[in-house]
Design a protein around this nucleic acid. Structure first.
Lengths: 250, 250
DNA sequence: TAGAAATAGGAAACGCCGTGTACTTTTGCG
DNA sequence: CGCAAAAGTACACGGCGTTTCCTATTTCTA
């Protein structure tokens, strides 16, 4: 996302950028190998043949490094999800949602430590900064899902003829209000989808919870003792979910 | 769970048990205050006016201490869930399941660090031991939910007269098999509920995922940017869930 | 009841960690 | 070329889990 931002970089700046990339690359490798908690400035410096203190020219504190890693990893997740979604036919919202959801689990299984970094305790005492590239990537995920859910709902509404008799299926008996969601989030969504209702926004978040729940349980090892085929479990959940969206709230 | 196991304790053993309790109590307090990552043998020893080395007579390594904490905290969670369930009328499976699910979120909000300890990365590089009291408490949670789901399904089957036309709602089109679940887990469940089918076991796990997902997102702060009322979101999810269980798989 | 064995606990050290201060080397520009 | 700025080093501080060695105290036994 940067290679084309102009060649007006002095030699120093180029070296600096390269060193920065090397630091994050080593950190990501250490994380993938030993978990997010194993990320250490000293370890990175050792591997680079530098003093630990040298890292501080690039990241003033370890949390800043972690922040950069979170941003990078969550952007890669968002990329993977959007790629999977776009691989499905644009005319079939259900298939797109299905692909998105399956890709979420597959990405998590392929990058379990990355998943822990983004969605778990990144590191003993880390507090994520409010705005920033990490938050932006998180919103990409959330808004992307919202759009898919909205599209699936809309498609269900136009094709399904018996939408009346099971209108209570999707659990929208509870009325949601625009005030149930931060304006900043709604603005972001509206950039993607016009036909929006509070119920759909709430539904998308609930869908997110369903996917996130099974993935989290699996990644953190809580499914191992109770299921021998988490993939089937996840797939069943996704099929149920996509199916139920055809009878969706207005 | 121990006060009645016989008074044949020597003075040494009594002191030892008391010190052990004091250690875990301080560790729990430290965890509640600063998070699971802040649990430190040295900190506990300092607070007890002892040398760090002294702790090693009680817990040979820090991970053993963490294991004990996980066991204690997850047992307290299981207690809370069973208490909430039993506060609802035994004749109304839906209400019992609802109470259980709401209690899960409430417990997590009241003990966020405990939730992280049990379901997240307990501590930088911690690996949970296979069998043990912690696993037992985890199974109490899982089996308890399974029983509730099974009961709710059974109730739905007997009362609902129009179960035929929405038989595909619960997403049980995918056939689950007994081999999809470890025998040890099935044995545990069968101790609680007789009328069992693979579909119901799978459904219970999916329900677990739904609840766990929203709670996890909220506890880890990922819902803050997208919802101003997570409680309403969770409640809607639970109501939808309980409602959909009335048209359940056989 | 006296002595032996087991045990709790203290002192100090090792090697990690993040971070701060002070100093030296390298680098690129005028 | 000369010199300021940037990059990097050396060292120190306090905290961490863990180990080794040693000393009291308590408990069991002859």
């Amino acid at each position: 996302m940067s290679a084309t931002t102009g060649p007006k970089l002095s030699r120093r700046e180029r070296l600096r950028a390269e060193t920065t990339r090397e630091i994050t690359a080593i950190a990501l490798r250490q994380m993938a190998a030993e978990g997010p908690g194993a990320i250490s400035l000293r370890g990175i410096a050792r591997e680079m043949g530098m003093t630990a203190r040298a890292i501080y020219s690039y990241f003033p504190t370890r949390d800043d490094l972690v922040t950069a890693l979170v941003a990078e990893v969550s952007a890669s997740l968002a990329d993977a999800l959007e790629r999977a979604r776009d691989a499905a036919p644009a005319t079939d919202p259900g298939a797109r949602l299905l692909a998105w959801g399956l890709a979420l689990r597959e990405w998590a299984l392929a990058n379990p430590e990355g998943f822990r970094l983004v969605y778990g305790d990144p590191v003993p005492g880390y507090e994520a900064p409010a705005g920033g590239p990490a938050a932006e990537a998180a919103r990409r995920v959330c808004c992307g899902l919202n759009r898919l859910v909205a599209e699936a709902c809309a498609a269900g509404r136009t094709t399904s003829t018996n939408a009346a008799n099971n209108a209570n299926d999707a659990g929208n008996a509870e009325g949601f209000d625009w005030s149930d969601f931060p304006a900043s989030y709604l603005d972001k969504i509206r950039a993607d989808v016009d036909d929006l209702s509070p119920s759909v926004v709430a539904l998308a978040l609930r869908v997110w919870g369903r996917l996130h729940g099974l993935v989290t349980l699996e990644i953190y090892g809580h499914l191992g003792a109770v299921s021998t085929d988490p993939a089937a479990l996840y797939r069943a959940e996704m099929l149920d979910l996509v199916g139920s969206l055809r009878s969706a709230p207005a």
